[in-house]
Simulated scan of single mutants.
Amino acid sequence: MARPRKPLLSTDRIVETARALVDAEGLAAVSTRRLAAELGVSGPSLYNHFRTKDQILEAVADSVSAQVDLSMFEDGRPWRDALHDWAVSYRAALRDHPHIVPVLARGPGRRPSGLKVADAVFGAMTAAGWPPAQATSIGALMRYFIMGSAIGSFAGGFVDDETAYDPADYPHLGQAHLLADRQEKVDERAFETGLTALLDGLEQQFRAL
């Protein structure tokens, strides 16, 4: 009887497994020993693909950047609409993988997908008529805003316990205990409010160019 073949170890499989670990347990859960156990291989075999844990996390971060839709920068949409739709797509990717945000916040570095995002935004802004320096600032501003929104939930930071908000101490927080149950709706509305205000401000600057 033929012996069963061991599953092939690939870079993609390592990244997918590491991403699942990060999603479920956070960055601290990723180690070569843990990954090897999850993959059913020996630890040293991982070094044929990645030399360090940091390289693995960089690859996970890039796999998340690859989920961001960039088509709006290529289909002729006005720059404001393109920025809006890209921001929504970017936030959705980060919302699905919030624990990797600290790695993404370091900047794209040498990550191919991260660099494609930066290139697409800068290229679209300069093509629309923004001066290069301001196009750079727009890319940075959008990244700060989107990543900041993905780090944590405002609504989720309130406990579902009415007694935690004594009117004598917090006279304006009588409904705060309801926020946790409405987390997604509150956070989505807050993101859209901030994004609209940000784009309104940029549009005023653009008209003044």
Results as ranks from 00 to 15, higher is better:
Ala37Pro: 02
Thr11Lys: 15
Leu8Ser: 15
Gly174Leu: 11
Gln134Met: 07
Ala190Ile: 01
Phe206Thr: 03
His97Ile: 00
Val101Asp: 00
Ala133Lys: 12
Asp54Arg: 15
Gly26His: 04
Met1Gly: 14
Lys185Ser: 14
Gly148Ile: 08
Gly123His: 02
Ser63Trp: 12
Ser31Val: 00
Ala197Asp: 01
Glu188Asn: 05
Arg19Leu: 03
Gln67Lys: 10
Asp119Asn: 12
Gly43Ala: 15
Ser153Trp: 04
Val103Thr: 05
Asp119Tyr: 07
Lys53Val: 12
Trp86Thr: 00
Thr193Ala: 06
Ala168Ser: 12
Leu70Arg: 11
Ser71Tyr: 11
Met72Tyr: 09
Arg189Val: 07
Pro167Met: 02
Ala24Arg: 07
Leu39Asn: 05
Ala29Trp: 01
Arg110Met: 10
Gln67Tyr: 14
Phe50Tyr: 10
Leu202Lys: 02
Ala59Gly: 08
Ala2Tyr: 08
Gly201Thr: 00
Arg80Thr: 01
Thr196Tyr: 01
Lys116Val: 04
Arg51Lys: 11
Ser89His: 01
Phe50Asp: 03
Met1Pro: 13
Asp161Met: 02
Arg80Glu: 05
Ala140Asn: 06
Ala82Glu: 01
Phe154Asn: 05
Pro44Glu: 03
Leu115Trp: 06
Ala24Asp: 05
Val41Asn: 11
Ala127Gln: 08
Leu173Glu: 08
Asp160Val: 08
Ala24Val: 04
Asp96Ile: 08
Ala2Met: 14
Asp200Tyr: 05
Ala190Arg: 10
Tyr47Phe: 10
Val60Cys: 02
Ser63Val: 06
Arg13Val: 08
Arg143Cys: 07
Arg189Gly: 04
Phe122Met: 09
Asp166Tyr: 03
Gly43Ser: 13
Val159Phe: 12
Gly109Lys: 13
Tyr144Ala: 10
Arg95Ala: 06
Asp160Arg: 14
Ala164Cys: 05
Ala118Ile: 10
Ala66Glu: 08
His49Ala: 06
Gly139Pro: 02
Lys6Glu: 11
Leu46Met: 11
Gln175Thr: 15
Gly139Lys: 04
Ser31Cys: 00
Leu141Val: 03
Gly114Met: 01
His49Cys: 02
Pro98Gly: 03
Val88Asn: 04
